[in-house]
Design a protein around this nucleic acid. Structure first.
Lengths: 195, 195
DNA sequence: GTCTATATCTAGATAGAC
DNA sequence: GTCTATCTAGATATAGAC
């Protein structure tokens, strides 16, 4: 593996920053915090990155490219509508497990970051995500496997919110695996809690 | 109405601050922002309040006393378990409608504020909220009206998250009333989306 | 690639006049 | 109750040495 160390220094620093942004918030994390955690001084960070904004930008872009690639694969597959919906939920919980910090940052900081022009792509991603879920829900209704008396827009929001907000309490390595949680969630979502 | 203006100036300023804290975040709202919105200068705010922290403290305390009073009433009532659960959901969506900014602040800033000793009561309120929902769910299971194969702790989290996170997209005066949203949500929660 | 040193800016808070 | 003026602390970012 040639030039692994130099190429990865950037990734290391981004991972350290992501952890802090996720835990304390973007605004509330100082470049000194990041440098301290990395064992260097704040000025040295500017050898690697333009600004604190550039750091969070790179973190979110990289993560979202991967996540939306997975959604696209599901949409393009030939699974039945119910299976696709389940896969989308599982992939999302997988992201919470594998990219916990990135999901947390997107959940907690997107509204703030969207006030800057350079982060306008986050709004595009929100629209894209809405399209994915609405498509899955409409296909399920059309195929007759989902109730047709539900407000699709509201249903989409409930699913989206419950899935992603789990990042606020799920901790990788905890008592329940992310797959167990995803399956319980799907059971409630599909069948309800009424006996 | 004697001395209405002087007594309400405090409340006016708190409402202005709450709106800004909810929209932009606590850390990201400056005392100058608050003063600007109130049409005064930043120094003048300190005639009314000790600090920015005191402002958010008063906002959250007042709101939570009211909300938890309502939960206590539901728990103490003689309605059946299913009705109590429905009432708790309705009361929560009512809070999102009537105290939108306060709910948003609690949702978005609690984790940060909890790093200060003076806000440790927020952790107590979180525990209290958990007890309310767990009690409602357990009573429903014991009475046989809720599925007994569900993880109660996970179910509580899904309900809590989906209810409160609605504050991020619900806007008072929008296309759907908060009661319509609450009823759709209860329909999904109780019966599921499967046809 | 990191450190030293520092420029620049912004924020919370205070004191006293009006 | 508000304004003027200002203090102080802390944050982002830069320049040049090592």
């Amino acid at each position: 593996m040639p030039d692994r160390a130099p190429a990865d220094r950037r990734g290391e620093l981004l991972a350290i920053a992501a952890r802090l942004f996720a835990d304390k918030g973007f605004k509330n994390t100082t470049v000194r915090d990041i440098a301290d955690a990395a064992g260097i001084l704040s000025g040295s960070l500017y050898h690697h990155f333009d600004s604190k904004e550039s750091m969070v930008d790179e973190i979110l872009r990289t993560f979202q490219e991967e996540l939306f690639g997975q959604y696209d694969e599901i949409l393009a597959s030939d699974a039945d509508p119910l299976a696709k919906l389940e896969q989308a939920v599982l992939v999302s919980f997988d992201a919470i497990d594998q990219h916990h910090d990135e999901v947390a940052i997107f959940q907690n900081e997107a509204a703030y970051l969207l006030t800057f022009d350079r982060f306008s792509y986050l709004a595009d991603r929100n629209r894209q995500s809405r399209e994915v879920w609405l498509t899955l829900l409409r296909n399920g209704i059309d195929a007759g496997v989902l109730r047709d008396d539900l407000d699709v827009e509201l249903t989409y929001r409930f699913i989206r919110d419950t899935v992603w907000v789990a990042v606020s309490w799920y901790r990788p390595g905890g008592r329940r695996t992310h797959t167990e949680i995803a399956k319980q969630y799907l059971s409630i979502l599909l069948e309800g809690i009424h006996s």
